[in-house]
Amino acid sequence: MNDQEKPDTSRRGFVQLLAGGAVAATAASALGSLAPAGGAESTAKQSRIQYGMLIDTRRCIGCHSCSVACKAEFDVPLGVNKSWVEYTEKGTFPNVNRHFLPRLCNHCSEPQCVAVCPTGATYKRPQDGIVVVDSGLCIGCKYCIQACPYDARFLNPVTNFADKCDFCIHRVSKGLLPSCVNSCIGGARIFGDVNDPESEISRQIAANAVTVLRPGKGTEPNVYYIEADITEEAENSDGSYRVRVSTHRSIKERR
């Protein structure tokens, strides 16, 4: 039974964990005598979906179609964003350069927001790896907002729940692309299952040098970038050249 699907690490209720463990053990012993190991389970693991996004920043023109599409899709209140674009401006005239970095929740494989949520409201869906907030459970304690290393979350000022990008579950489950991907005029966003080696996103990830953001935080993001410029303002501390990082969010700095 080594190939058994990794237990769902979300909704890690202590009680549920214990209960789940007992059920799994019973099931394992029952199945062990009936079915040969491997087989069904290993296919199950391979077919387990982890949705992800690949953002090719070379194709991004900083037009904010994604930001606007996301706002419109969810009626995201003023002052907060699920999807945003950061500008990195570098150099001194005439040798200047401007780079765009579209941002959203990374739907991490080791999401810190899930680890800290005291009610189990934030969890990683076992069927597709999307990290979601269950508004029926969320108490708005903001622990997850503090814990996310990407500042991807916010307290929705209308509902007072924690909120963030949900990879447009309502569209994706109907076979549509997420709104920001659909609207991207540069074709900079590729959405798909990163666990399926045949998918477009997996092939692009394999064929390009890709990075994730803040890999040192151990969150294992599922949003990948091609040529992401991650220069920080602090890097021009000696004043030799200019760096300015800004966003259109209500808080202008990168956090």
Partner: peptide
């Protein structure tokens, strides 16, 4: 809390979150 009257949701479970 963003949702003060939901505070009882905290008692619906015990997980490993320090909170």
């Amino acid at each position: 809390l963003g949702q003060p009257f939901r505070a009882l949701n905290l008692f619906k479970m015990l997980n490993l979150s320090p909170m």
